[in-house]
Simulated scan of single mutants.
Amino acid sequence: MGGYSQVPVLKDVSFSVNDGELVGLIGLNGAGKSTTINHIIGLLSPFKGRIAINGVSITDDSEKYKSQIAYIPETPILYDELTLKEHLELTITAYGLDKEKAWEKANHLLEIFRLDNKLEWFPANFSKGMKQKVMITCAFMTEAKLFIIDEPFYGLDPIAVHDLLMEIENVKNNGAAVLMSTHVLDTAEKYCDKFVLLANGQVKANGTLDELRALNDGKDQTLDDIYLSLAKDTDNG
Rank of each mutant, 00 (worst) to 15 (best):
V134R: 07
R114W: 02
N125F: 10
C138D: 01
K133S: 11
Q132H: 10
L119V: 02
G129R: 15
A139F: 00
R114E: 12
Q132F: 05
E104C: 07
A139D: 01
D116L: 10
I136E: 01
M135L: 10
K128P: 01
F113D: 03
I136S: 03
L110Q: 06
F140P: 02
K105Q: 10
E111I: 00
A124F: 03
L109S: 04
C138I: 02
H108Q: 12
L109E: 08
V134L: 14
N117F: 05
V134K: 03
K118C: 03
E120Y: 12
L110I: 00
I136C: 06
F122Y: 15
N117P: 00
N125Q: 15
H108D: 12
I112W: 02
W121Y: 14
L119T: 03
I112E: 04
P123V: 03
D116F: 09
N117S: 09
L119I: 02
Q132D: 06
N117K: 15
N125H: 12
F126E: 05
E120A: 06
D116R: 10
E111P: 06
N125S: 13
N125M: 13
A106G: 09
L110F: 07
L115Q: 09
E111D: 11
V134T: 09
I136K: 01
K105E: 14
K118R: 15
E111N: 13
K131R: 15
N117Q: 12
A106C: 11
S127T: 11
K128A: 02
E120R: 14
D116N: 13
V134I: 14
M135C: 14
P123F: 09
K133H: 10
T137G: 00
M130I: 09
N125W: 06
K118I: 00
F122A: 05
A124P: 00
A124S: 13
R114K: 15
M135E: 14
I112Q: 11
L119H: 07
P123D: 04
L110N: 04
L119F: 11
A139I: 04
W103K: 10
I136A: 05
E120N: 13
N107P: 05
Q132V: 10
W121A: 10
P123L: 09
A139R: 00
N107L: 10
K133L: 12
S127G: 06
L109A: 09
N117Y: 11
W121M: 11
K118N: 08
M135A: 15
K128S: 10
P123G: 07
L109M: 11
L110P: 02
A124Y: 04
R114N: 13
M130E: 11
L109K: 08
F113W: 10
K105V: 01
W121G: 00
